[in-house]
Each structure stands twice: as structure tokens, then as C-alpha cells.
Design a protein around this nucleic acid. Structure first.
Lengths: 157, 157
DNA sequence: ATACGTGCAAACTATTTGCAGCGCC
DNA sequence: GGCGCTGCAAATAGTTTGCACGTAT
């Protein structure tokens, strides 16, 4: 499998934007961090784990260490560039912050497929929680479990 | 701290109900499983981790092994007695199935407090997902992140 | 030049597994 | 009495950390 260094037009802008956020926060722009960011951008529709990011990074530069990947992912989370996802597996997955693109996940109990689901309906609910629980909601995550279109017809075991 | 073996009236019934579910599924009702179930019932409002269950179990019977706790929690999940929760920590937490009592969690970003939040509003959303994504929702989990009543006034750092 | 960042290996934490013996049905 | 269950210890998986060296600013 050959992977080029090409990044589509929109991605290049995003790359710059994220890199700017890093320098503004006084973090150094090392080749490792750029590479990890690039891998995340090129797989923006995936929900990669640390190990998966590591593998993709190593295809480009085998000298990068796993610890660096972990440290960088943690840094990106602190900068708000990345979001940590806790599906029910044993590992954390990550997805890039994508501005206004709010979405949640539909998780198939049979094949494990994860489908993104955009919503705006939940804003009402947040107002209700504020009034009822005096809880200031700043973010939410929803996971729906069930059977996707491929699996719902077959037996659910 | 003294912990008695007393279980409130309603809890005794629940204990029986859960134990019945185990025997019906042809699993043996060992003293370890009863004890773990009892601990879960007595802490029904907590979201205990495996390690916490283990500690509570050992106060009653120090001979129970950690592996047994893990195996039993897994068994209870399979039987539908328990639900596994993935908060953003590094460990899984568990809560007893409580029939119709559907609820989700409000997670305070400052103090980590977890508040339960019951909802019926989301049923509408499930119908929408079925129609729009052809996805058969059988369960859902929502997590709202924000600041609880104690923390929202203070600075959010 | 000098903090900050990195690679490596070792440590750590949560969880799982293999196996000999114990105990519920 | 047999097979499932248990305790122990060792194995595993994911992640974190200490340290000497490297490098972006």
C-alpha cells in the first residue's frame, strides 16, 4: 500500500490552522507532530486508536516512537484539536475537532460498525437540564446501540 | 466502618429476582456471586468499578479473588443484570439494570461528579434514526459534560 | 543556547487466562 | 459425583514515565 504525502486542498488549510493553534499555545512544531496531524487529517472520517495512528505514522517514518504518539494525542486533546472517544472496546479512539460539525455515533451491536449521526435536536434538552439540574452543559456525547442496515435483517446474535 | 449484612426490604426482593435470572440461565448460585450481587445492590446508586466491587467484597469475605469479580461482572452483563459504563477514566464502571428506570449521566468537568438524569424525550429521536439511517436502535447512552451547581459559579479551570 | 521534545525501555494499570482443586446442583 | 466455578499467579493490552539525547525557536 502506497501512501503519498498529498493532502487535498481543504486539508492543507486545516493543517495550517491546527499548526497555528499549536504555535500560539507555545508548543514546538516538530516533524513528529506534523506527521501525526497529517495522518489524522487524511483519516478524518475514521476513529483511529493510538496504535492505529502509530502504524500509519510508521509507514512514513519508522523512527517515531509509540510514546510520542500517545503524548501528541494527549497534547492535541488539550489544545481542543482532538476529541477522545470511549466506545465500549478496550481502547480510546480519537477524532479531529471539526468546528460546527456536531455529531454522535450509531454503534452496531453485531458488526461493530460506527455510523456518524448529526443532530441539532438536543439543544432543547440542554436548556431543560440547565433549568432542572442547574447544570451548565458545555458538551455532550450520545451513543446509540442497535443494528445497522446490513445487520438488522439477519438474526441478532 | 461497619457494614452489616442487612439489606432493605425492596432490595431483598430484587436479590431474589436477579438470583432467579441466574438459575434460569443455568448458572450456579455460588456464595461469591451472591456476595457480589449483594454488594452491587447495596451500592445501587454508585457506579462501582471492578476494583471497588472487589474491595467491598473483601470486607465481607477476604478469600474472594479479583478474577472472580471480573468474571462475575462479565457474567452479570451477559445476563442483562448489569450495564457497563465507559466514562472517560481508564476503567469501566458498572450499574445494575433497573427495569424502566432509564437514565443518563451529567458529568462535571471540574469535580468529576456524576449526576443521573432520567429522560423519555429521546424516544422521538430513535424513531427518526430508524427512518433516516435504517438503524434499529435498541439502547442508547448519553453523556453531558459541563459544570454542576457547585462548580458552575467558580472559575471553570 | 536552551528549554522543550523524542526514542527507548521499563513500569504501571486494568483486565484476562491457564490450571489445579473446590463445591453447587 | 461431575462439571462448572474459584483462587492464584502469570500473561496480556493499553498506556505512562524516567532518562539521556536531539532539535526547533
Amino acid at each position: 500500500m502506497i501512501i503519498t504525502w498529498k493532502v487535498g486542498g481543504g486539508l492543507k488549510d486545516k493543517l495550517k490552522e491546527y499548526e497555528q493553534r499549536m504555535t500560539e499555545a507555545n508548543f514546538k512544531l516538530t516533524s513528529q507532530r506534523r506527521l501525526i496531524l497529517r495522518v489524522l487529517l487524511e483519516n478524518i472520517n475514521e476513529h483511529l486508536s493510538a496504535e492505529e495512528v502509530y502504524q500509519l505514522v510508521r509507514e512514513r517514518n519508522p523512527r517515531v516512537g509509540l510514546a510520542t504518539v500517545y503524548r501528541t494525542l494527549e497534547l492535541f486533546c488539550e489544545l481542543g484539536i482532538l476529541h477522545e472517544l470511549n466506545f465500549d472496546n478496550n481502547c480510546r479512539r480519537y477524532e479531529l475537532e471539526q468546528g460546527d460539525y456536531h455529531h454522535h455515533h450509531l454503534i452496531c451491536l453485531k458488526c461493530g460498525k460506527i455510523i456518524e449521526f448529526s443532530d441539532y435536536i438536543l439543544k432543547d434538552l440542554e436548556g431543560y437540564i440547565d433549568r432542572e439540574y442547574n447544570f451548565d452543559v458545555v458538551d455532550h456525547r450520545i451513543k446509540f446501540y442497535g443494528y445497522c442496515s446490513d445487520c438488522r435483517i439477519e438474526s441478532k446474535d
